[in-house]
Design a protein around this nucleic acid. Sequence first.
DNA 1: TCTCCGATTAGAC
DNA 2: CTAACGGTCTAATCGGAGA
Length: 423
Amino acid sequence: MKNQPRSIGLIDCNNFYVSCERVFRPDILTRPVIILSNNDGCAVSRSNEAKALGIKMGVPAFKIRDQVKEYGIEVFSSNYVLYADMSNRVMSILSEYSPIQEIYSIDESFLDLTGFSDIAERAKEMQERVVRETGIPVCVGIGPSKTLAKLSNFIAKRHPKSRGVFNINRLSPKQVESVLTNIPTDEVWGVGRKLTTSLSEFGIDTVLQLRDADVASMRKRFGVVMEKTIRELRGEACIELDDMASAKKQIINSRSFGKSVGTIEDVQDALTHFVSNAAKKLRDQGSIAGMMQVFLLTDRFRAEQPQYCPGVTIPLVMPTSNTMTLQKWALAGLDSIFRSGYLYKKAGVILSEICDASSYQGDLFAGAPENSKIMQVFDQMNARYGKGTIKLSQDGSRQSWQMRQEKKSPEYTTNWDELPICF
DNA sequence: TCTCCGATTAGAC
DNA sequence: CTAACGGTCTAATCGGAGA
């Protein structure tokens, strides 16, 4: 039993954001489509047609304006409410196919399929069910390690012959070699731009070369992550599936502004809003934070303007998740770093030193950790009557910094008011 | 010189 | 027409301060 290879599945939604939009827009099923990042900044999801037109991942929107016009590319702002809801539907279906699921990102899930005798049929079935019940097409990659499952998924996506399912465990060693020799190292999970360059200087350009490199010397040169990657490529499962959604160790809320702002009032308004969001996330995972950082950035793409990117770290003597307390400290921090005469493009807050709210013993003389009753009521009201029903006075009341989102589709699945059809 | 810790980097999506 | 290059998260590594 122990000698049987693990069968780890990696299910990845195809062009996820584009696919979500297409579910409600059958008219764009065969058209080039792209989805822009926050602030309508960069292309972060592309349909195959858009990829074929040469639209690169992450390209700034203004740089492809001409192609958008010439080819009639359909452009959408990010609609995270919709994507999150579609993701939940997909993940929920997938969860029925294994008791061990790790939801790795909004559009990817690992499943442990080890021990199932009918892996090929299961993979096929989950793929068909997801597309039938949600409209989202997915590919399934299977391998003895997470890294090889990811690589299998890449093969499934690239080779139409696989029909969206590929299991590297079914290949002979010879076949594996011929497959891996045709894939460049940068397709490997954990190998990014820098490593690709360094590896190439070492004469390593294909996945096969990387797999067969000497572990000891590679570790010495590139570190422990590289060693794990190589072992995983050899079929040794070094990275376990992480069943439980683990509590975040750091919570960031930051945003680029729709246009740069120069007054402290505008930055205060944005910052209090970011703190509200971050504190809500903190409470949702039942945590409190012991450290807060506040930062400001001017527009780094405007080299001719004076640049100033300050930040301040604020230790919280009494860890808390109370929005009002956190906002008070954030505004004090802002006062200490804000300088007029600059145009700020982005601001944000980082909560860290996060621990469990219930485990915190508190200061003997300070009494119990800050009474969180008021925040509980606050959260309950917003949950019941809708986000933003109650908020603190300063939170996001100005519009000056709001991000651009000019092409957002309706929240089809979660908001009656946005449905395009009148009943 | 060693250790600790915050800051930076690299990677993922 | 404006003006126009994202947001979170983790882990490893770097490098300075203090012991």
